[in-house]
Design a protein around this nucleic acid. Structure first.
Lengths: 226, 226
DNA sequence: CCACCCCAACACCTCAGACAAGCGGATGGG
DNA sequence: CCCATCCGCTTGTCTGAGGTGTTGGGGTGG
């Protein structure tokens, strides 16, 4: 019997069916799915179609297929959209989270920074200062600031912290641009000094000072937002 | 660290190659990609392989293919699946990130905790102790531990930190269960004392002590994993 | 009895080819 | 100028074949 008319590709429908089965616990977390041939026959689709459906779920992080072993469930649900959380949260909450990440990263960076990391940080610091004095575009200021902070995070050599920071960038960037448009920094010179202090602490391999410098800077930042 | 180059399915490599091309702007947002046959020839892979790579990127929300029309770029960057990052990251990195979040949250909790928060924390602490002494299932121990730590995070009254912690739970939970199965805690009593110390610091509204207690506990934890 | 090695069955991976289904521009009639 | 139709190109789906990696069981030596 030919299938009913369907506007959506069979691949997509198959992926939905599989996800529904996984959600209702037909196959548990970490468990192996039936073989391609078996599953394709059960669902009444061709092997290619099933394979593409599996790929789609693999892209979503639900399935993982290992050659020779089988296809395994690695998540029972699609993860919540992280951007949505950040949009919903207040600026204060985001800065607090940023403080948690950046102070820790600053301390780690002081311990782990390589000469190359140091060069990147100092170059970013220089660009940042140049922007402070000459550039007129506020967005450019903020971007230069982000580049510097990201260089610090990278020097910590921790992928999780780096990824967290990257998630925060768009939200923080927008908030900072909006704020600076309304009320510019009281003292650009002090702002630069705070950043230079952080860079120096990292160069000196002084974790405590680096964390301290990062914390005071972000505390000031938060005060401006409230 | 795992080997830098490891045998990966051609499908996955192809998906990465496409994503790299998109990121560097070879094809712009909303633009149509070359036809499957053309692209497959260019990349030197079979059409099925290319199709599965496209399907994988479609699952990530980067590409969208419409029958008869072509394949289109619908996002130039992939909001990296958070779970995927945590799976790929080392346990050490995850614990370091956890340290960043929990020490900050502990300090905030000490300032903001309500009487209700305190009750929840103490109840979780009690359940945790009970598990230490009577329960036999390792997973039950770990779950009780997670409940306690989550109660602390909730007391910080910061949605972003709470959401971050929740993202970490599955990964950390699995790692802890695996580890405890191989090598149980040296001293369950000391472990309980460390947690009780944290609860007391929060009750006393002492941010520095709370952060300190949280940090020492997680440092010990990290030591066991390395 | 245990530890180790070997191998065959099984699983996914990759390719090639064929035909169906759908979109979009070109075409030609009104 | 408008619109219905046609045709070329694109993706969708299926099938069959051969390749590669994993796993677990049986045989062997200690």
């Amino acid at each position: 019997m030919p299938p009913f008319v369907q506007r959506r590709p069979l691949t997509s429908l198959t992926a939905d069916a599989l996800l529904a089965d996984i959600r209702e616990g037909k196959w548990r977390l970490g468990q192996r799915l039936p073989g391609e041939a078996t599953l394709a026959a059960q669902l009444g689709v061709g092997r290619s179609t099933l394979r593409e459906a599996i790929r789609e779920l693999a892209g979503k992080g639900v399935l993982d297929s290992r050659q020779g072993a089988g296809v395994f469930v690695i998540a029972t649900d699609v993860t919540e959209d992280w951007d949505a959380v950040l949009r919903r949260a207040s600026v204060g909450s985001v800065i607090e989270a940023r403080m948690a990440i950046e102070t820790e990263a600053a301390a780690l960076a002081a311990e782990r920074r390589t000469p190359a990391d140091l060069r990147t940080i100092n170059r970013a610091l220089g660009a940042r200062r140049w922007c402070d004095r000459d550039a007129t575009d506020i967005a450019e200021h903020v971007d230069a600031d982000m580049v510097f902070h990201r260089a610090v995070i990278v020097a910590a050599h921790n992928d999780v912290l780096a990824e967290l920071f990257d998630s925060f960038v768009p939200r923080v960037r927008k908030a900072m641009v909006d704020m600076l448009r309304i009320r510019p920094l009281d003292s650009p010179e002090d702002d630069h000094t705070a950043h230079a202090l952080l860079a120096t602490a990292i160069a000196d391999r002084d974790p405590a000072a680096a964390a301290e410098a990062s914390r005071t800077h972000l505390t000031d930042l938060k005060r401006q937002f409230t």
